[in-house]
């Protein structure tokens, strides 16, 4: 009986991996880019199934919400702006035989070497106790969180998470400095069905996001997954024509976008001053501090992700002097 279940799971693994690999190949070889992007979203969803098989439920949630959902939206918006055709103004020089051979050759040498190194390393690892799972579980009581992954993200390796908030912010700054946001939809294109659906879905999205955030304290879930869900809600609201009032698009929006990073940094600085180590929370306060960071971070992540998908800084930030928006004159003069 046990061998039968083992064989069944093995067959499932094999089918899943074969599908993943062939999908990756198909989507990268497909001539139609729209089809490629849709296949990529499906690939992300299947990949989250693979994460579940490997016992990584947090990664599966993040992959489905961020990897497949938000990245898919980003790619679709980008495809809409770029177009599927390969346009180049310059006459293309046909590749010589050696140039054509270079890519397979590079991969043919590099990949087997990497594989060899990995297999050798894995063989050595077989003698070692598997991972830091025991260590994390032993320290879980003092971490302020009941879930291993959240404890690692928010306490043991909180530096990573702090810097990753910085990366998110940096990406947003880059995007804002490169382009101006264009509306995703025109006012007269919004269908009443979508508006009705949004009214129905938005409260559910908000509740589920809150649940996922709260659940992160003792089970798979947490700030990123909740933030990605919330940003999907914000995007849905944007698609049915809701826009931020112009007076909120300046300081309030920027405060909301950066709050996650600032609060985290502030706590890091305070703990550095009080205990000598950044982000080593005093033990009785650990749970509360983690919850505070996660709450603010969720709001920030949600707005950053939505802003990233919309792409570009808010339009009224342009230095066009005769702008008819009702923004405050004090800010405008700068």
């Amino acid at each position: 009986m046990a061998t039968l279940t083992m064989e069944l799971t093995l067959i499932f693994d094999l089918i899943l991996l074969f599908t993943l690999i062939s999908m990756a190949w198909l989507l990268l070889a497909s001539t139609d880019l729209f089809r490629a992007v849709v296949l990529f979203i499906a690939f992300g969803l299947l990949l989250s199934l693979a994460w579940v098989r490997l016992g990584a439920a947090d990664v599966a949630l993040a992959e489905a919400a961020i990897g497949a959902g938000i990245t898919g939206a980003l790619l679709l918006v980008g495809l809409g702006r770029l177009g599927s055709a390969e346009r180049c103004r310059f006459t293309r020089v046909p590749l010589t035989f050696l140039q054509r051979l270079s890519a397979p050759l590079l991969i043919g040498i590099m990949i087997p070497s990497i594989t060899l190194i990995l297999v050798l390393e894995l063989r050595l690892l077989a003698d070692v106790a598997p991972g830091q799972q025991g260590l994390v579980n032993a320290l879980l009581d003092i971490s302020g969180s009941g879930h291993g992954v959240t404890a690692v993200l928010m306490n043991f390796r909180a530096w990573d998470t702090l810097l990753e908030k910085g990366v998110l912010l940096l990406a947003l700054i880059t995007i804002w400095s490169l382009d101006q946001a264009r509306p995703l939809v025109h006012e007269d294109e919004i269908s009443p069905q979508l508006t009705g659906l949004a009214r129905l879905l938005l409260p559910i999205v908000i509740i589920v996001a809150g649940f996922v955030l709260w659940q992160g304290a003792h089970a798979p879930g947490g700030a990123f997954q909740a933030g990605a869900l919330l940003s999907a809600g914000i995007l849905l609201a944007t698609l049915v024509g809701y826009t931020l009032p112009a007076r909120r698009q300046r300081l309030s929006l920027r405060l909301l976008l950066t709050a996650g990073f600032w609060v985290f940094l502030l706590i890091a600085a305070t703990t550095l001053l009080t205990s000598g180590y950044p982000l080593s929370y005093p033990q009785p306060l650990a749970g509360g501090l983690i919850l505070l960071i996660e709450l603010v971070a969720t709001a920030s992540i949600a707005t950053i992700l939505a802003a990233v998908v919309v792409g570009g800084h808010p339009p009224d930030n342009l230095s066009v002097p005769e702008d008819d928006s009702s923004a405050s004159p004090k800010k405008r003069r700068k």
Binding site: A56, A62, G67, G131, L168, F224, G312
Partner: peptide, 25 residues
């Protein structure tokens, strides 16, 4: 799975999202 690689991959997913966003722009 070991929680430490899981946490690092979670960070990695967000960073790869940032990469995708900047690259598309």
């Amino acid at each position: 799975a070991d929680p430490v690689p899981q946490a690092m991959v979670l960070t990695g997913i967000v960073v790869s999202l940032c990469f995708t966003a900047v690259a598309i722009v």
